[in-house]
Design a protein around this nucleic acid. Structure first.
Lengths: 178, 178
DNA sequence: CAGGACATGTAACAGGTTACATGATTAT
DNA sequence: ATAATCATGTAACCTGTTACATGTCCTG
């Protein structure tokens, strides 16, 4: 399961609370592997039972207490083990495709509208990613190590949104409201 | 939920058994919305309770009996309703991205090998889709109706696999075994 | 004073995966 | 003989989503 390992990587980079991890999953990591805070809290608990992480309660004043998780030696081992274990290549899974296939059985105008909306959302995400690339990785050629790997993932996000937009454009070109 | 509606479209095209639907999900439909036979049987049962489909037991000789499902009027209504109800745009979800991000914490050679393997699988799928396009849709400009919509979905599959391959190429160019 | 940030959680449910089970016919 | 195709299912499990719950501090 990738969520556990995504959390392990995050914790290997720096110890964090569930709340902080959830925020990082909204930015950056979550761009290719989403998770809600509930999922994260639940998974952290399981990882704690497995002793992949330790948990320290930090009492704070003026703010709610928090729990800071850190990766353990056995968590690091698990991460290495997982990295060297092949996973299945991703498959596309877009509900829009199901709708396109059923276009003849419904209202074509509604479908065109929806494709337009999807295109806009993908374009918005692409914009965010490009901003991100510009601000955080201005000189990608000079990057090394973890930072460079993060950049490669961001590139995946950019190429992915470009693909979605191109497909939406083909759809809009092909579908006509007759 | 898209699986129900993908099955409704399939049944709107022609009445089928769960087994036949599972096969079509291996080909064509499953290229963008996968489902195992267990999922399909379970979902058909639910759809039957909802009266979106009718079920006829066909006794066969020399072969196991089968159940043929057909879409009902209320199933057609549900399909139309769903088509006109917006769904969220797809998000990418690739475990490979998680691995790339954790590349510094594991064996880089293993990761390069895995990217190579993913690239090969995506290239294989792309090949299949292109064959499919060539055989089943030789003159896309002249297509109309449902057949054209199917072609547009296949285009999505082709563009998607091209994207994955391009990303894998960037990864392989960027990652070096030091 | 309202709303957002901080911080963690329970509970119910929906959807997807994996393993196991059965059993006839046909092709190699 | 062995495997593949046809055909349907149960059961357990894992993952993901949605709603609800609590309570403080800070900012506008």
């Amino acid at each position: 399961m990738a969520l556990e390992h995504a959390l392990l990587v995050s914790l290997a980079e720096r110890p964090s609370s569930g709340y902080e991890l959830a925020q990082r999953f909204d930015r950056s990591i979550g761009y290719y592997w989403g998770a809600t805070h509930q999922q994260i809290y639940r998974t952290l608990k399981r990882m704690h039972s497995a002793q992949w992480v330790t948990c320290t309660l930090i009492t704070q004043e003026g703010r709610p207490d928090k729990k800071t998780y850190s990766i353990t030696t056995s968590g690091n081992e698990e991460l290495r083990r997982w990295i060297s274990t092949p996973v299945a290549p991703a498959t596309l899974r877009d509900e829009l495709a199901v709708k396109i296939r059923s276009a003849s059985f419904g209202n074509i105008v509604d479908i065109i509208q929806e494709v337009t909306h999807h295109r806009a959302e993908h374009a918005e995400r692409l914009d965010i990613y490009r901003q991100f690339a510009k601000n955080d990785y201005p000189n990608p050629d000079k990057l090394t190590g973890a930072k460079f790997h993060q950049y490669l993932v961001l590139r995946g996000g950019i190429l992915g949104e470009e693909f979605f937009i191109r497909w939406c454009d083909e759809l809009l070109e092909g579908l006509s409201p007759d």
